[in-house]
Each structure stands twice: as structure tokens, then as C-alpha cells.
Amino acid sequence: MNRIEKVFKTMKVEGRKAFVPYVMAGDGGLASLKEKLVFLQEAGATAIEIGIPFSDPVADGPVIQEAGIRALNTGVTLQEIVDCIREIRPIIHIPLIFMTYMNPLLAYGLERFSRDIQTSGIDGLIIPDLPIEEEEIITAYLDEVKIELIRLVTLQSPIERMEEITKRGKGFVYAVTVNGITGTRAQFATHLSSHLKKIKSVSPLPVLAGFGISTPEHVEEILKYCDGVIVGTKIIELMEAGNYEHIRALIDATKLPIA
């Protein structure tokens, strides 16, 4: 069984909610990736999303764009990131998920990429510029090595499309909470709760919400309607600022009893 599947099975039995933080590989130097992953695992992250930097990340807001630029400026390559994961993997026990855009993967070679990330210990993959209409380009390679392609559902996806996406999905469903790009937001759409409930009602997989979630209050509120949260921009900002206590507070918010 894939680590992602296993973890969510356990969480369900124990009635716990998931917290998935995002870090940009190569930001602050690739050497810092290990300590970041170790910290997040120790702080209670359910799984970790690892961004692979791309020059033109159209789904990302300024904070993740800049983290990507910082990473690229160090000269980091996808090959080095894959090798780094292979090295760190023995001490990280939670699922690791790569998030990146199609072009770096194409340049690496989709078949080789799928094989290499599997042997290095990656469990899942999120590709924001790959809707279900185009996913055949890579799914056969991923299926072969049992890497789970995490699909995204958004506020714009009609119910039939939600059904189609969640039916195909592996691991969990990534419910995008805003019309927009990544980045912190003060408020969410008023119909977000009903939207998340709708996804929950059709999805055979756990539903994790992401985009714009930045405070323990957001985490608590959103967890009423889904199985976990994904936090990217805020984690990057807090790591930049060295504010690790605040990261713990965000993660701890998932451990509160749900009202």
C-alpha cells in the first residue's frame, strides 16, 4: 500500500485531521531541505508537499514565485532534488509529495522521472497545469510505479466534473479554496463550506483544502468541512522569518477537537 493511502487510513480510524505543509526545494540551499523536512515531521505534519522550482509558475502567487526564483538562483536542478530526497528518505517516515509544473518533468523525461522519484521515496505528485483532459501524458508511467497523482478540484468545477475528478483521483483530493493563485488571504468565499461539503459528498477519497489558508482560525474553520488542510505560502513566509513556533501553532490547530 502506498504511504499516502496508509496514512489516511490510520487517520480515519483515529479520527484525526491532516496537515500538509509545503516547502520549496532549493530555497535557502538544497542542504536546508533535510532540516526543514525533519522539523515538519517532528512538528506533526501528516505529509509534506515539496515544490520543484519552475521559471513560470502560473498557479502561484508572489511568495511562492519568489521562493522558486531564489531556489533557481542557487542553480538547483531536478536531478539534485531527486537525489537529495533519496538521501533524506531513511529518516522521514511520512508521505512526500512533489508539486511542480509540466515542463521541468518533460525536460527530465516523464518515464525516467516517474521511475526515479519512486526509487527515491516520493509517494505522490501534484501538477497544477495538468487537468484530467491531458493527464494521460503521464498517468501510465505513474501507475506503473504506484506514484499517486493528486487531482485538484476547484470552486469552478461543476458537480459532474467533481465526480469525474474524484473518481480518477489517487491518495487524496486537493480542494482549491479560492478562485485564484496561491497566497494568503484574509477571507474566503462565503459558499466555501457548502462547496467543501459538496466535494466531500461525491469524493471516495479524503478531501484536503488548500490555497490561502494562513491562520490557526482558518485551519479550525475549514477542518469542519474536510479531512485536512494544505498550507504553502504561510509556511514559506514563516520559515523565511525563522518563526517555527507559529508553524507549530498552525499544525496544532488540526489537533483540536472539531466543534
Binding site: M102, P131, E133, E134, L155, Q156, V176
Partner: peptide
């Protein structure tokens, strides 16, 4: 060609 866009744009 194709449609390699974020899911939010697919419906549009």
C-alpha cells in the same frame, strides 16, 4: 497544443 491549464480555468 492541448489544455495545460490550472483546473480553475478548465470550466471557462
Amino acid at each position: 497544443g492541448g489544455r495545460y491549464v490550472p483546473e480553475t480555468l478548465m470550466q471557462a
